[in-house]
Amino acid sequence: MITVEKLTKTFDTDSGPVHALNAVDLTVPAGQVCAVIGQSGAGKSTLARCIALLERPTSGAITVDGLNLTGLRGANLRAARRQIGVVPQGDSLLRQRTAAANVELPLEAAGQSKLERRQRAADLLDLVGLADKQRAYPDQLSGGQRQRVAIARALAAQPSVLLADEPTSALDPETTNSVLHLLDQVSSDLGVTVLIVTHDMEVVRKACDSVAVLENGYVVEHGDVLDLVAQPNSRIGAALLPTGESALGRADRLGSAPIAHDRVADLVVVGFHAVGTLLGEASSRHDARIDLLGGGLARISGTPVARFRIGVQAARPDAVLDWLADNGATVCPTSSEVAA
């Protein structure tokens, strides 16, 4: 579990102070994957570096599994660092060491014997799917393989928290998927709390339970991905969902015989059951005709999520929308479309 409270970081530069983080609050429950997303310069890396104990906060508190990280020094600082696995932004492998020797570095720092280290490094490279690359040097590996070695190294000393700064930014979509899958596995199988810094919405969709949006050093949104998706006014939720509009819907409305819907609404539904059966049940219960005007289905952190634009024809159209809302759908009437 990571807790960040009122975290502020100001850099003093020649051209005046730079407020990289402003009273940032963030909580990542144990075993979950959280994304920190935002534009370049928003403060994402600074936040990750503060938690990684590479940067001293100007003020505020950071707690990892109950341990207060602020103000640590010497041996206590080094011990705390061992609790936190870090995959830094960019290439961070030792280029004169083999993959296995890179993974061993944290174990050397922890004072383990050569035998233990070798065994653990072999196990970890196996975990990240690089059992056959133990003796390869970083320059003999692909970008995705290097990133996997970096993740294996970050996990070597069995940290309870893993921080990854832009772990997929230099990778193609397929390699990105495999790295995300690995991070997902790390949190679900090993119970590690994972914080991923990214500017890629796809990373949030595929691998994250929660997300925090940074803008100019402020957290402007923070919450569970599936909660945010269901909130009509969440910008990140909207960005994660398929759009309500679709070519199909427009063509339908421009057709020769437009159907006079009593109501048109945008609907967000979350979960297997809801996506599969909700609309059918609504239509049979209320003897209503429900047309799909647009939208689509997405899978967000493993859960099917849909945004549909629907047109309703019924004796009591509002009752249909109310019933949908009562049964877990988020309903936004699109007033301009009423009786198109």
Partner: peptide, 13 residues
């Protein structure tokens, strides 16, 4: 490379 050194710092070395 600075990130190589930082990676080492984060191991608690």
């Amino acid at each position: 490379n600075a990130s190589v050194v930082e990676a080492a710092i984060t191991t608690g070395a």
